[in-house]
Amino acid sequence: MIVPVMIFSINVQSPPSSQASYSAYQFCRALLRQGHNLHRVFFYQDGIYNATNLAAPPQDELDLYSEWQKLSKEHSVELVVCIAAALKRGLLNQEESIRYNKAGHNLAEGFTLGGLGQLIEAAAVSDRLITFGN
């Protein structure tokens, strides 16, 4: 059977403490294994917590934070974090940290901040948009 190659985008709305974030990650891995394209992973609501570089999970637990970064590195996947959701939850990049005069910044490498328009653009160009929520 010939499987069509599709463009996917993923909307992660759940924090790393919810299994939905892990499901989203496994779904991304699986679609890439099958040769589909992953246009963008958009982190919204509490999903933005997946993008912190300050989390230090115990060594005997999965480090989902690093897994997202590896995914992005290996497959050049765009990991976009909703800027409005991020700022109000205390997730900042260097630029926003300076703008709001905050003590530091904690957006992990591989992630970028972007507007909700990035979610809608992802919907516009993708064959499938899959939401993982909690």
């Binding site: 709305q13 919204y44 909700l116 328009g117 919907a123």
Partner: peptide, 14 residues
């Protein structure tokens, strides 16, 4: 957040 996403969708002409 759903409401905000609705506005964004409308603004981006979908």
């Amino acid at each position: 957040d759903a409401f905000d996403a609705a506005l964004a969708t409308a603004i981006y002409d979908q």
